[in-house]
């Protein structure tokens, strides 16, 4: 009777161990890169070698061209083959922007030495946020412009690219500061697919973003093999 009890509890313990190992396993696999591709997708039929094949076309960020704090043109080529995190803000924002920027700084610091990751902050108030204003802002944040681009451009292009990133950005006189915008940080991969959207005002979500980014970066040891 007593023995029975012990074996039973041993068995339970063993099960628990397995569960733990399993958990550990699945954790690892998510770190290895199972981030979904977000946005609308289309299934396209086409003919190849006389047979019908089905392709899935994922939502892709279209080409863009903006100007950064150094008056340099930042385009889709600037982020080619790179992973980037993007957001929308304005320098005179009386609400969530400073919090977003303090969280984006965490991402910046965590990947300071990772050339494959860049940050791209768009102003939604290009009338006020000229290159000079963005320059001053970036200087005061003490960040380098190779890594973190603060961009301005045609208002319409900025607002329409925000939609592509699935981020809300609107002008609204009723709102404090004159704009409505979300505090989202959008994670984009080398193919310009959106792989994650995080609340940039929430430290826990930004922790998650920092954890997720390496899954999209080229594997360090693979790179060594190639060299």
């Amino acid at each position: 009777m007593k023995r029975n009890k012990i074996t039973r509890s041993l068995f339970a313990l063993l099960l628990l161990c397995f569960a733990g190992a399993w958990q550990g396993c699945s954790d690892k696999s998510s770190a290895a890169g199972d981030l979904p591709i977000l946005g609308e997708r289309q299934v396209v039929q086409r003919e190849a070698d006389g047979r019908q094949v089905t392709d899935t076309v994922y939502h892709t960020i279209p080409d863009f061209a903006f100007i950064n704090q150094d008056s340099q043109v930042v385009t889709s080529l600037t982020v080619q083959d790179k992973v980037y995190v993007t957001d929308f803000f304005f320098t005179t924002c009386p609400t969530i922007c400073p919090k977003m920027k303090s969280q984006m700084l965490r991402v910046y610091e965590a990947f300071k030495d990772e050339p494959q990751l860049v940050l791209l902050s768009h102003t939604i108030d290009p009338k006020h946020d000229t290159v000079a204003v963005l320059r001053d802002y970036a200087d005061r944040l003490q960040v380098s412009s190779d890594k973190w681009h603060f961009v301005t451009g045609e208002k319409d292009s900025i607002y329409s690219i925000a939609m592509q990133y699935m981020v809300t950005a609107l002008e609204d006189e009723q709102e404090p500061g004159g704009f409505v915008h979300s505090g989202a940080f959008v994670l984009v991969d080398q193919n310009r697919h959106v792989r994650g959207i995080y609340d940039g005002t929430d430290p826990a979500q930004v922790d998650k973003l920092i954890q997720d980014i390496p899954a999209l970066l080229p594997k360090k040891n693979k790179k060594k093999d190639a060299n």
Partner: peptide, 14 residues
Amino acid sequence: ANCHMDDGSGLRNL
């Protein structure tokens, strides 16, 4: 707190 942060630390030189 949005600007001066919850712990009053501010934001770099901004």
